[in-house]
Structure formats: C-alpha cells, structure tokens
C-alpha cells in the first residue's frame, strides 16, 4: 500500500500544515500590512517552484521585496503583474487599468504559461482582490475573472492560490455576505487579526483543523 502522492506546498514560516496541490485560500483582514506579510509567506516560491503575483496596489519593487523577505531569492523565481507603478524589474509587468479584467486575465494566463515552461509547481496570488472589486461596476466580472484565471489554473496545474481581501475596503456590496460566498467557493480561509505590534492571530478554517494561532510578523 502506498501513501497518496498528492503534491504538497510547504509553509515553513507560518504554523500551518502544508497545502495540498489545488488548494485555494481566501486571505482576509482589515490591516493591509499584516495581510501583505501573511500573503508573501504563503505565496513566496521555494526552490523548485514559481510564484505569480497580481498586485493591485503594491509596486513591483515592493512585491519583490516582500517575496524575498518571506523566502530567500523568491523574487528570482517569480513573475509580478502590477497595477501600481511602472515596470521596475525584469520579472515585473505593468498593467494600465485595473478595471480591464479582460486584459488583466490575458496577461495572467500568459505568465502562467511562462511559469509552466520553467517548473510545473506554481504559487499564484492576488493582492488585493478588494481593489478589483472596488474598481469594477459589476461584481459578476470579478467572479468571472476568478473562475477564468485563478481557480481554473489551480484545477489544471500543480498549484496553490491565495486571494487576499481587505475587509475594511468599500467594495460596493455587503462585505460579510460577499465573504460568505467567497469562503464557500475556496478550499479554506485565513483571517488575520491584529494582536499588538508585529503580532497577529490567524483564524484558520477549511485547511485541516479549524483553529486560531498566534504569529509574529
């Protein structure tokens, strides 16, 4: 009898069990600094992996810094699509209009295909999905974008995905109701609660045992 050979994505700098291939995580919280810190720890590529980050408010330089802070040399194994600021490095692609989800999706698909040419293992993330929700007039476009890009890629590839959402943002709808829907569609949720300077409590659900853990960030 053999053990199940499901690919695992280790999360070495958070007290979380490894994610199985195909896992989708909804990352929420109202402190964007803490959200970013947890996001980078989840998404930073390890040695045999690639990262793909769609950043709505962080510059390419900031994303690279965040990834490297979470895993040594992670930015060298990453592609960044940013809606904030010009291309800053070889791995960064600028996007003119955050509300152009058709163009954004095509760029995202192209970068996934490029990543696959290097290694099959991918960590993909959106930071922050709430910015996209705020920018579009019809939230159905956001759902179509998530289905067509992030969730499809997790299904087809050896990949995990993280969608970060700032719960304090005005997204033009009832945030609690919106989150309830998102939570039901993702494998699990991590809610980040501030717990003093440099500290947070992660409320984890749907990713093995539901629990709350204290972390230093």
């Amino acid at each position: 009898m053999s053990l199940t050979e499901t690919a695992q994505f280790e999360i070495p700098n958070l007290p979380l069990a490894a994610f199985e291939d195909g896992t989708s995580v909804l990352l929420t919280g109202d402190d964007t600094d803490l959200l970013e810190s947890v996001f980078y720890r989840l998404v930073a590529a390890r040695e045999d992996e690639r990262s793909l980050v769609l950043a709505t408010e962080a510059s390419g330089r900031a994303v690279n810094r965040g990834l490297d802070g979470a895993a040594d040399g992670a930015s060298d194994r990453s592609a960044v699509l940013t809606c904030a600021g010009p291309d800053a490095a070889e791995n960064v692609t600028g996007v003119d209009d955050i509300a152009d989800l058709t163009g954004l999706g095509m760029q995202f698909s192209t970068l996934v295909a490029d990543s696959q040419a290097t290694t099959g293992r991918l960590r993909a993330g959106i930071l922050l999905c709430s910015s996209i929700c705020a920018a579009v007039d019809d939230t159905r476009s956001v759902y179509r974008f998530l289905n067509s890009n992030l969730l499809s890629q997790l299904r087809r590839n050896e990949a995990v995905g993280v969608c970060a959402l700032d719960t304090s943002a005005d997204i033009g709808t009832n945030v609690d109701s919106f989150l309830a829907g998102m939570k039901a569609s993702f494998t699990g949720r991590i809610d980040v609660e501030a717990d003093g300077p440099g500290r947070a409590i992660l409320h984890v659900s749907g990713l093995g045992d539901d629990r709350s853990v204290e972390v230093s960030l």
């Binding site: 209009d97 509300a99 152009d100 989800l101 058709t102 163009g103 999706g105 095509m106 760029q107 698909s109 192209t110 295909a113 579009v136 019809d138 159905r140 476009s141 179509r144 974008f145 067509s148 499809s152």
Partner: peptide
C-alpha cells in the same frame, strides 16, 4: 481566444469585462 497576438497588442478598451481564456 486562440491567437498569436500578444495580450499587450490586443485592444480591450471596449471589452473590459468580456473575460476570455487566452491561449497563445
């Protein structure tokens, strides 16, 4: 969308929420 045209050369200005699968 099955094309050899790069995403950066595709005019999406009037189709911002059309959302397609792009395959080069």
């Amino acid at each position: 969308l099955y094309t050899d045209v790069s995403p950066s050369d595709i005019d999406t200005a009037s189709f911002e929420d059309a959302i397609v699968e792009y395959l080069n």
